[in-house]
Amino acid sequence: MSGIRIDAIEKRFGAARALEQLTLDVEDGEFLALLGPSGCGKTTLLRIIAGLETQTSGRIFIGGRDVSALPPRERGLAMVFQNYAVFPHMTVYENVAFGLRMKGATAAEVNKQVERAAGLLHIEPYLERYPAKLSGGQRQRVAVARALAVQPAVLLMDEPLSNLDALLRLEMRSELKSVLNSSGTTTVYVTHDQTEAMGLADRIAVMHQGVIEQIDRPQALYERPATRFVGGFVGSPPMNFIDMPVKAGLARLGDFTNPVSTGRDTITAGIRAEDIAVVERGGLPFDVMVCEPLGATLLLTGRVAGQLARVAVRPDAVVAPGDRLNLEPSPGRIVWIDPANGKAIGQAA
């Protein structure tokens, strides 16, 4: 049992609040991603869980044990750092063995675990080399192997793939997922890359300005964002936000109408680029400005009643800049957002 309970954690740097009263449960064996733009407090939260940073108030429980006041080495966790932090003066073998040696494991146990971890991450050929002789991707593998060698109850990862090139990142991502799936390690993974979070995590906590905007499964987060921020941050291209005037319980823009429940006279429709069909007549008038063939889709950027919007259409569609199209969003997939507070309507957020 090694779930993590984050109980009303707050962190202030002088007058500035980095984290505001965060409460969060990570279940045993779960992979949770902390997703947010830089400066949102996700790394601070991770470092507080690790014990590298001290919270201003609040408590951290790991496996039911209050570790709030314990130094990092007594918290029973492992961590992978953004810049790897692989010790340059030790061989790869000694790096991977480091945690085990600190625990006073026997030589046989060290050997067994190093070989297991090295096997998982395919670094057996480099065990006797020094990290300076390795590529970035190989060093990253060493850092992960070092963390897995101690068979931690909890694994913390701070943007572990951000220093790798795009192709390597994709490869490491799927490899990480399969390695961590089989080990069943409770993992907290910090990233600013929403595709990474979507691809890896069981659940994603989207953070913004020191608060958690929404926690949910990746698909739910994508389809039903609780706030405008989440809709705009998760998914590529970001969700479209189109303001529509409301009259008598009906949102109307161009020839498009939809019943909505709001007391305000404007409402924001959050619509994903792929949830829009191009129709013969009616719907939303869309003036195409830019066409980007992305292979799987053709991405159109343009304006709906002066508001920026992106639409993904079939790659073989014949569209040119300057065209006017008629768009019909699928009503069931629209997220209606209160423009005053940026929160989705009809959701417990």
């Binding site: 480091f98 625990k103 101690v150």
Partner: peptide, 9 residues
């Protein structure tokens, strides 16, 4: 920090 996490006093 890494050394501290992995158990070094």
């Amino acid at each position: 920090e890494a050394a501290e996490i992995f158990g070094a006093g």
